[in-house]
C-alpha cells in the first residue's frame, strides 16, 4: 500500500507538472515547416492573448512582413521559468528570442553571452546591458497616456478620474505620468492606485470600485489585470481608456480609446540590422512619431468632434515636440 501511495502521489505531481508545462506551451504556434523561414520565439510573462502587454508583442510579430516560424512560451510569471525557456530556445537554435519583460533582464545577462549567434530582444528596457547580441525596446507610453488624459479630462463631468496600475515599474509609470499630466492640465483631479500586482484581477476590480466611490467618472489602467477594472467600469457605465492593446472588446460601448503598441515598427529595424550582421547592441523606442504607438479610437463610442480634435492636436503636438508629456 505504501508503495502504491508513493507511486500515486508521484503520478499526480507528474500529471500536474505535465499539464502545467503543456499549458505553458499551449499557444506555441509552430506554423511552418519551411526550413528557410526566420525562427523567432517569444517568452512572455502573461497569456499571449491577455489584451495587454503580452498580446501586444504576439500581434506585432505576427504583423511582421517576413516569413517567420514563431514559438511562444507565455504565462512565465516566475522568472526562473522564463529563463529556462529563453535558454531552451537559444539551445534549439532559434534565430531571434524575445524576452518580453523587464524582469527577465538579469537572466538575459547570464544567457546571452553563451549564445553569440542568437539575437535576443529584450524589453521593456532602455539599454542592452552592454551585450552585443541584445536589442532593447521600450514604449514612450507617456505619449499615449497624455493623449488619453486630454480626452479623459474633456469627458469627465465630476472632474475626478481614477487610474489602476500594477506595480510602480516598467511602462506603467510613464503611461500614468503622461495621463496624469494631461488630465490635470485639463482641470481634472487624478487619483492613482498601484495594486501591487500585475495579475490580481480581483484587486484591480476593487481598486476601480474605490475610485468610483470617490466620484471618479472616468477610469483608465495598465497591465493585464485591468480586465477586472474594465468590468467594473462597464457595470457602472463609466468610460475607460486602454493601453498596450486595444481593449474595446471588453466594453464595446465604454472604451473610448486605446494606446496600442506596434512593436513591429522596431522589430523590422532589428531584423534588418541582424540581416546585415549586427546581432544587437542597440536600444529602440516606439512612439507616436515612428508609428509604434497608435491611438485607436472606438467608433462605437460617440466622442464629440471637438474632443476628438483636441486629441488629434495633442498627437500632432507630441510628434512635433511642442507638447511636453511631463514624463
Amino acid at each position: 500500500m505504501r508503495k502504491k501511495m508513493r507511486l500515486l502521489t508521484s503520478l499526480l505531481a507528474l500529471l500536474g507538472s505535465f499539464v502545467l508545462v503543456a499549458s505553458a506551451c499551449g499557444s506555441s504556434d509552430d506554423s511552418s515547416d519551411d526550413g528557410g523561414a526566420l525562427t523567432m520565439a517569444i517568452v512572455a510573462p502573461s497569456a499571449s492573448d491577455d489584451l495587454a502587454f503580452s498580446q501586444s508583442m504576439v500581434d506585432s510579430v505576427n504583423a511582421l512582413d517576413r516569413e517567420i516560424t514563431l514559438s511562444i512560451t507565455d504565462g512565465t510569471f516566475i522568472v526562473e521559468e522564463a529563463a529556462a525557456a529563453i535558454r531552451g530556445y537559444a539551445e534549439d537554435g532559434i534565430d531571434v528570442v524575445i524576452a518580453h519583460g523587464t524582469q527577465f533582464g538579469a537572466s538575459l545577462a547570464e544567457i546571452a553571452p553563451d549564445f553569440p549567434d542568437t539575437t535576443f530582444v529584450w524589453g521593456t528596457a532602455t539599454d542592452t546591458q552592454g551585450l552585443g547580441n541584445v536589442f532593447a525596446y521600450s514604449p514612450a507610453s507617456d505619449e499615449g497616456g497624455y493623449v488619453n488624459g486630454v480626452v479623459a479630462a474633456a469627458v469627465s463631468e465630476s472632474g475626478k478620474i481614477g487610474v489602476v496600475g500594477p506595480v510602480e515599474a516598467g511602462d506603467a509609470v510613464p503611461y500614468i505620468n503622461g495621463f496624469t499630466t494631461a488630465a490635470e492640465a485639463g482641470g481634472a483631479q487624478v487619483s492613482v492606485t498601484y495594486t501591487g500586482s500585475f495579475g490580481d484581477v480581483a484587486l484591480a476590480a476593487e481598486a476601480a470600485q474605490a475610485h468610483l466611490a470617490n466620484d471618479a467618472d472616468v477610469l483608465t489602467g495598465t497591465a493585464q489585470m485591468v480586465v477586472g477594472a474594465v468590468g467594473v467600469a462597464a457595470d457602472a457605465g463609466v468610460p475607460w481608456f486602454g493601453t498596450q492593446s486595444n481593449q474595446t472588446s471588453l466594453a464595446p460601448d465604454l472604451v473610448i480609446a486605446s494606446q496600442v503598441y506596434h512593436w513591429e515598427v522596431v522589430l523590422e529595424e532589428m531584423l534588418d540590422l541582424r540581416d546585415s550582421g549586427t546581432k544587437g547592441g542597440k536600444a529602440f523606442e516606439i512612439n507616436l512619431a515612428n508609428g509604434g504607438l497608435v491611438i485607436e479610437f472606438n467608433d462605437g463610442y460617440d466622442l464629440s468632434d471637438d474632443v476628438r480634435a483636441s486629441a488629434d492636436a495633442a498627437i500632432a503636438g507630441i510628434i512635433d515636440g511642442s507638447v511636453n508629456t511631463g514624463a
Binding site: G16, V19, A47
Partner: peptide, 18 residues
C-alpha cells in the same frame, strides 16, 4: 498530494482557457 492538485488545477484551467 494537495500541491499536486494545485498544480493540476493551475495548469489544466490555463490549458482549457487557451
Amino acid at each position: 498530494s494537495g500541491i499536486g492538485i494545485f498544480i493540476f488545477g493551475l495548469g489544466f484551467s490555463d490549458l482549457l482557457f487557451r
